[in-house]
């Protein structure tokens, strides 16, 4: 059962083992790959720490039967991912058949509200990310001529990676796009300098930086669209009533009142309600789009 099924050589070191897990997971969601590698590394290192002095190849062989061979691990993560997505996530609403159902069904989709909330929040997060990126980059360049320049750059890029994970968590919770739950795998057996070099050559570091800069304009745009859309549509809904009941919204020039005729009031309210749904559709679409942007810049690059 645990015998190697094909010509893949039995892994002899932790790195070979992890490399084979990665290879076996080829084509899977990059976020799943990152999580699987992290879990495997934690487990195998615990095993290694438990049996100090025993040959690494022996431990890895033992791990391949207890934790699973790379192919088995890959299969388990693929399976579990599918099952869990089905079980734990809010199931996607059944697709509505009628055009009306499709249009109004957006209000029953939890993703819509997640996306709307994300749009409102993105102004704040965008400002934070942009400031962090701008200050980090300019200080890194400015300090480069001094001796503290190098540690500062390293610290800054490390911060960028942490922020990438944090943003990923927010995107997953609010926009429902699968993002990593573990930091990216770094080969800890390498010396510190090599690991720092890895951080520089990892395209994800730079794409994350790009994402952070991009978040300011995007955040401003999302926030504006959300606030304007909601304010306009909700005030139209209320406007119909306000005009009829309280005579609000009319221009009063010395007793002569200007405003839409009374019979338009219901139309204004109905128009407002329809517009609320249009805004919800827009929010959900923006949420989907942004989820893809985040996935490509924070996880997939590289």
């Amino acid at each position: 059962m645990n015998a190697p099924v094909n010509a893949i050589p039995t892994p002899r070191t932790l790195d070979e083992y992890l490399e084979q897990v990665r290879a076996a997971l080829a084509g899977a969601d990059p976020a799943v790959v990152q999580d699987a590698l992290y879990d495997a590394e934690e487990h195998v290192r615990s095993e290694l720490a438990e049996h100090r002095g025993v040959d690494e190849a022996d431990i890895i062989a033992k791990v391949a039967s207890s934790y699973g061979s790379p192919e088995e691990v890959a299969a388990i993560y693929r399976d579990t991912e599918v099952r869990v997505m089905r079980a734990l996530r809010t199931p996607p609403a059944p697709p509505r058949q009628s055009a009306l159902g499709t249009f109004f069904g957006v209000a029953a989709d939890p993703r819509t509200y997640g996306a709307l909330f994300y749009m409102l929040l993105s102004l704040a997060t965008g400002i934070v990310y942009f400031t962090c990126a701008a200050v980090g980059v300019s200080l890194s360049l400015g300090l480069a001529i001094l001796i503290i320049g190098v540690p500062f750059v390293v610290l800054f890029l490390g911060t960028v990676r942490v922020l990438s994970l944090v943003e990923g968590r927010m995107v997953e919770v609010m926009l429902g796009v699968r993002m990593p739950r573990r930091p990216p795998y770094t080969d800890r057996s390498l010396p510190l300098l090599a690991r720092i070099k890895d951080m520089f050559t990892d395209p994800r570091t730079w794409s994350t930086l790009l994402y952070m800069v991009l978040m300011l304009p995007l955040g401003v745009a999302y926030f504006t669209v959300a606030v304007t859309g909601l304010a306009l549509s909700l005030s139209l809904v209320a406007g119909g009533f306000a005009g009829v009941l309280f005579g609000l919204g009319l221009l009063d020039f010395d007793v002569v009142m200007y405003g839409p005729p009374l019979w338009t009031a219901p139309l204004i309210t109905i128009g407002g309600v329809l517009m609320v749904f249009v805004v919800l559709h827009l929010a959900r679409a923006i949420g989907r789009l942004h989820g893809q942007i985040a996935k490509h810049l924070l996880v997939k690059a590289g």
Binding site: A36, S66, Y67, E72, I76, T80, E81, A87, R181
Partner: peptide, 16 residues
């Protein structure tokens, strides 16, 4: 069985 199956489940119980 295969212990790698435990980690995703732990993570999901945590998420829940």
């Amino acid at each position: 069985g295969k212990q790698s199956a435990l980690y995703p489940v732990l993570r999901n119980l945590h998420a829940a």
